[in-house]
Write a protein that binds this DNA or RNA. Sequence first.
DNA 1: CATCAACCCTGAGAGC
DNA 2: TGCTCTCAGGGTTGAT
Length: 274
Amino acid sequence: MPELPEVETVARRIEPHLVGRTIVSADIRWARTIAMPAPKKFQEQINGRRVLGVSRRAKYVVIRLDHRCNLLVHLRMSGDLNVKKGKIIAEKHDRLLLTLRGKRGEESFLAFNDVRKFGRVWLTDQPEKILGKLGPEPLGADFTPQWLYENLQKKKRALKPLLLDQHFLAGVGNIYADEALHIAKLHPLRLSNSVTRKEAAALHRAVQTVLIGGIRNSGSSIDWMYRGGEHQKYFRVYGREGKPCPRCGDLIQKIRVAQRGAHFCPTCQPLERK
DNA sequence: CATCAACCCTGAGAGC
DNA sequence: TGCTCTCAGGGTTGAT
C-alpha cells in the first residue's frame, strides 16, 4: 500500500494508541521481518521500552521509544500496522506482534501484518544511519521549485524512475508519481535535464497536490487489500489504462518503465516538446 | 553514474 | 474446477 500518504495515515492512526504505552513482549512470527538487530537481541532490547511518539519519514513509520531507542517500520508492498485492545489474537499474515501495557495495566497490542513478507523493522539508537541517505521530504521546507529545477538539471534520467528514487526525493511511489506527471503534463520518459524551469515548477506543485490530496483522503485502497482510504476514487491515470483522460478524453496508455507500470495520457503528456 | 535483471514473497484475476 | 501465467502501492544487490 504504502506511499507517503498511506504511511502518514498509518502513523496518525496508531499514534494516539501507542504513546505512553510500554512494550512488554515481542512475538516474532516471521524472523526476516526483523532487519536489525538479531531476533533475540531485538526482543531483549524492546522489552520494557515506553513509546514517546510516532511520526513518518519518507515511507518509514518512526516509533520513538525511551532509552534513545527507535523502532523503524517499512511497510514495503503489503504491510500494515494496527493497535488492538485486549490480549493478543494473531491474524493470518501477522509477522510481528508487540504486547503493550498502559499506565493502569490495560492490555493491547501492535500488529504488523504483511502478506508478502517484504516489510522490515529496525530497532536502533541511530535512526539517521537508515534515514539519513534519503532525499528531502516533498512536503517539507527543503523541497522548493528552485531545488527541484536545479536537481533535475544535475541528472540525466527519465522523470518517472527519478521520482521513484528515494535518494532523490523521499516518499513518492508508483501511483503518486504517475498522477503528478499527468497533472504536470510531463511524459514519464522525459529526461530530467530537459525540463524547463516552468515545467519543474509545475511538477513541484503537482507532487505536492497529489500527496496532500492522498493524505486528505486517508490514502488509497486498491486491490484486495482494503485499508480505509478513499483516494483511489480520484485517480486520473493510475490503473486506468484504456479509459479516457479526465483532461482531454484521449485514452490512457500503460507502458513499462524501470520494471514498473507507468500510466499516462499520450496527448497531454507528449514525449516530444511542442 | 545509470540501467537492468534477479530476487525477496503471497494472492488475485485472466485465460484456457 | 483447476492449472498456468501475469501482475501488484517497494527496495536491494550485483552485473554491465
